[in-house]
């Protein structure tokens, strides 16, 4: 992000202060990973100059799903029912395709009760950001294992999880999400880069963010704790995002950076960290996730991206204007149309 001269009050390119992107006071536990994610969302939307009242926030039920109340207070929010935010968001985005939509859910929401909707959301490649605040437990119902908890990991009470986990990134890649990323609530910079990219992606972005639950899953034996992530997080690249309205002339030594051009002309710049990774290749992405899992690492970064796939609006042949506010002259066919149909039925 460029830093221009600092005016008395710092504002973004649409003249709003960061304050305008804040939400209500959080009621989540102090130290909860979800709170950090809310902060990153505030920053990313502020820095990208997104009009807050043109944003719609969606969630299901859970501690994670409460968080839309704690960011973007000037945006419309819809805290729906457990596991069903995808359908609500789909309907809303169809009603008004000009909005930016962001879904925040938990791992219980996504990988258990809502897995059906999650899976089908990915098939539909709607321009939407899907944030999965992944803590391996049901926070709000006090610490039961979720379906993303690693086999062999331990609950706070010492119970060993004997169920295989569901990897939502693998699922996403398999099922057609066109941006799949994994991150850690504690990695401020990476998460910001990913969110900014997602804000400029013309399809579905699935972002699985390991977000420790300090109250029920931050202990020894958990694979979703702060200390576990500090030891095992393996960023695959550094994520920088250059929006279309900014100069991309920042020089980089050839071969150090992978450049992915987004549909709107923005650039995703992935700086190599040790290895060269091509995130536009599906098989690469799957191999990366599986290999790192074998090694006990959590690969984070933009695992997979296809910036120019046809999205759901295109497939439906939808008009550009929001369906929600179309005038009657467009939504109600003329009397002659009814007469014609009646004539056919005689």
């Amino acid at each position: 992000m460029s830093t221009t001269a600092v005016p008395p009050k710092k504002v973004n390119r649409i003249g709003l202060e960061v304050l305008n992107y804040k939400g209500g006071k959080t009621t989540l536990c102090a130290g909860c990973g979800h709170n950090s994610i809310s902060e990153r969302i505030v920053e990313a939307f502020y820095e990208m100059g997104i009009q807050p009242w043109n944003v719609a926030k969606f969630s299901g039920i859970g501690c994670s799903s409460k968080s839309p109340a704690y960011f973007l207070g000037l945006s419309h929010g819809f805290n729906s029912v457990h596991g069903r935010a995808p359908s609500v968001a789909t309907g809303a985005m169809l009603a008004n395709r000009t909005m930016k939509g962001i879904i925040v859910t938990g791992d219980g929401d996504t990988a258990s009760i809502g897995i059906g909707q999650f899976v089908h959301l990915m098939r539909r490649n709607l321009p939407l950001i899907y944030i999965l605040e992944d803590n391996g437990v049901y926070g709000l119902t006090k610490g039961q294992f979720s379906a993303t908890a690693e086999m062999g990991s331990k609950s706070k009470g010492g119970v060993v999880n004997d169920m295989r986990k569901i990897d939502c990134c693998l699922l996403g890649i398999e099922l057609g999400a066109t941006l799949v990323a994994r991150s850690f609530s504690g990695d401020k910079k990476q998460l910001q880069g990913i969110l900014k990219t997602a804000l400029h992606h013309n399809g579905l972005s699935v972002i699985d963010i390991i977000s420790p639950c300090v109250t029920f899953n931050d202990h020894e034996g958990s694979t979703k704790s702060y200390s576990y992530m500090k030891e095992h997080d393996l960023p695959i690249h550094q994520v920088d995002f250059v929006p279309y309205y900014e100069d991309i002339s920042i020089e980089m030594a050839d071969g150090e950076v992978r450049d992915v051009e987004m549909h709107d002309g923005s650039h995703l710049r992935l700086r190599k960290l040790g290895r060269d990774y091509d995130p536009t290749n599906k098989r690469n992405a799957v191999r990366l996730i599986e290999d790192s899992e074998e090694k006990g690492e959590v690969a984070t970064g933009i695992l997979y991206i296809r910036p120019r796939e046809e999205n759901f609006f295109d497939q439906l042949g939808l008009m550009d204007a929001p369906l929600a506010t179309l005038p009657e002259s467009i939504t109600r066919p003329a009397q002659s149309a009814l007469d014609m149909v009646m004539e056919e039925l005689r």
């Binding site: 719609a56 819809f78 309907g91 985005m93 169809l94 009603a95 059906g116 909707q117 929600a324």
Partner: peptide, 25 residues
């Protein structure tokens, strides 16, 4: 001037309708 979605089940179809209705469709 319309969108028709064959949803994955009735949970999703009513969810989409509620979402769309909320957004003014």
């Amino acid at each position: 001037s319309y969108a028709v979605v064959q949803a994955e089940d009735e949970l999703a179809s009513i969810g989409m309708v509620i979402g769309a209705g909320w957004a003014g469709a």
